[in-house]
């Protein structure tokens, strides 16, 4: 379980990172921040980028800032920083992200880029209509979370683009995220997040991307899920978990 060879580059600025991505475009470059998912995949040789562009030295991509009706979270902000920031549902949801050392090192932007359908940040971004601000050779653009996730490890991000920050609407609504896994710290079998103001739910673990449903009715949401039997997990059980978790998330979010 040793990674394949790659070349290592350190970006000193946002623009520098994009420049590197452009320059190295033919050599399969990949951004690395916390690396908590990427390095594991590289150790299994499931991912074998030719170049790694380390962005952790970029100093203006970390931090949380309220900017009028927007909450801006720098892509390099760690889960742990958010957990301790007192940001309502965002902070509370961080307890579901792996374990302390993962939360200490893993970043918000990395999680969004990795695009696991049960990842807390992906679900929260879709639930709350966050916008993903990215920088590319042609400049910066914002992508609505609802349009960002295409599938596991597959997003609207172009290969030469860098996630700069995640922008949430502010103030945050009464909302909650909850999950079920047999073992603590695991990726959820099913996860549910609800926004009571807009009466919407996002489910993870029921499809290739976080699933947004405009309802808080657990029975209705579970019944409407398009899930199939899989080895060890029937569609019936997945629906049942979704029903339970939506109920629990609503209860947690309710004042």
């Amino acid at each position: 379980m040793k990674p394949a060879s790659f070349e290592f580059h350190r970006a000193r600025s946002r623009a520098g990172a994009v420049e590197l991505l452009t320059e190295l475009a033919d050599g399969d470059p990949k951004i690395i921040a916390g690396g908590q998912s990427l390095v594991a995949m590289m150790n299994f040789r499931l991912a074998r980028p030719g170049h790694l562009v380390d962005i952790t030295g970029i100093d203006d991509m970390t931090g949380i800032e309220v900017d009028g009706d927007r909450l801006r979270i720098g892509a390099l902000t760690t889960h742990r920083t958010v957990e301790k920031a007192g940001l309502g549902v965002l902070s509370a949801a961080m307890r579901w992200v792996g374990h302390l050392p993962i939360r200490t090192r893993g970043t918000v932007g990395g999680s969004i880029a990795h695009a696991d359908a049960t990842a807390e940040w992906c679900m929260l971004a879709v639930l709350l209509d966050a916008r993903i601000r990215v920088l590319g050779p042609a400049g910066s653009r914002e992508i609505a979370a609802g349009e960002f996730f295409h599938g596991p490890f597959w997003t609207a991000l172009e290969p030469d683009e860098l996630i700069v920050e995640i922008v949430f609407p502010w103030p945050l609504p009464p909302a909650a995220l909850t999950e079920y896994a047999d073992r603590k710290g695991d990726f959820a079998l099913v996860a549910a997040a609800v926004d009571l103001d807009r009466e919407r739910t996002v489910l993870g673990g029921v499809g290739p991307v976080p699933l947004l449903v405009d309802s808080l009715d657990a029975e209705e949401i579970a019944a409407g899920l398009d899930v199939r039997d899989e080895p060890g997990v029937s569609a019936h059980y997945r629906r049942g978990l979704a029903r339970t978790l939506v109920r629990r998330a609503v209860a947690e979010a309710s004042p």
Partner: peptide, 15 residues
Amino acid sequence: LAASFMEYKVPTAAE
């Protein structure tokens, strides 16, 4: 089907 600790679920102090 269990080639990593993601699939082979060794219990932790929480379990």
